[in-house]
């Protein structure tokens, strides 16, 4: 939990072995939360890396990425998101 009490809606995982460092995801990410690593992976590519915060879970980076499993986008589970909004799912019904 952040001090504001709000978690990021999304989260990004990059498979360091599969990423080829094309940077299309970096170009595509609306809030610019993807960066390029300095170090090279096993195959000699710099790879994409989540900046650590600010992902909205929009999934755009996933669609522009040419590799099948280099990118995984996660979203805050609905109950967590809902409780953060202070609303209980199905409450009272």
């Amino acid at each position: 939990m952040t001090s504001a009490g709000k978690q990021d809606r999304g989260r990004l995982r990059v498979d360091q072995d599969e990423c080829k460092g094309c940077a299309l995801c970096i170009e595509a990410c609306p809030p610019h939360v993807i960066q390029m690593t300095e170090r090279l992976n096993h195959y000699g590519y710099r790879t994409a890396m989540y900046a650590g915060a600010g992902c909205t879970g929009c999934g755009i980076c996933f669609m522009v990425c040419p590799e099948p499993g280099a990118i995984t986008v996660l979203r805050l589970a609905s109950h967590v998101a809902a409780s953060a909004e202070g609303v209980k799912p199905c409450a009272g019904n």
């Binding site: 504001a4 990021d8 999304g10 989260r11 099948p68 995984t72 986008v73 996660l74 979203r75 805050l76």
Partner: peptide
């Protein structure tokens, strides 16, 4: 802003099933 634990997140965009 920051992250909660991974467990609170579910995959919405990941490697499609139709790939090996």
């Amino acid at each position: 802003m920051s992250n909660g634990t991974e467990a609170e997140y579910e995959v919405t965009h990941g490697r499609p099933q139709a790939f090996y």
